[in-house]
């Protein structure tokens, strides 16, 4: 038994049941975000896939892998997007190394 059940993804819409107004506001916002705008829906799908990985959200990875396939996005494009997310995530860790260096330089002259 896992905390995550793939079948729960289909139930996402049910969150409106316990707070209709907030739930509906969320889905209205969510659906507006993913509409074609200055960025194409295809570009937004790849961004969502990258963020799904940095957030390590199984539901989002499931949803946006399928969304990418539906849009004809190739597995190479998907993997490159995942690497963009991973690079930012690792870069975000590594750039803190400057803090460590600053501290060492200050304390250990």
């Amino acid at each position: 038994m896992s905390y995550y059940d793939p079948k729960d993804l289909r139930k996402f819409g049910q969150i409106t049941q316990w707070s209709e107004s907030l739930g509906e506001k969320f889905f209205e916002y969510y659906n507006s975000v993913f509409k074609e705008g200055a960025l194409t829906a295809r570009e937004k799908s790849l961004i969502a896939l990258a963020v799904a990985h940095t957030e390590m959200c199984p539901y989002c990875i499931d949803a946006y892998t399928k969304d990418g396939l539906e849009r004809g996005i190739t597995k190479n494009e998907m993997m490159e997007a995942v690497h963009v997310g991973a690079a930012i995530k690792s870069g975000a860790s590594l750039v803190h190394g400057v803090m460590m260096m600053n501290k060492v330089n200050k304390l250990d002259s």
């Binding site: 295809r42 399928k66 969304d67 539906e70 004809g72």
Partner: peptide
């Protein structure tokens, strides 16, 4: 004619057409 290569539904026809 585009039909998906696996167990998923086709995306937006106009977007796929432009891409192809």
């Amino acid at each position: 004619v585009y039909n998906p290569s696996g167990a998923f539904l086709p995306g937006d026809q106009n977007a796929l057409s432009a891409e192809f």
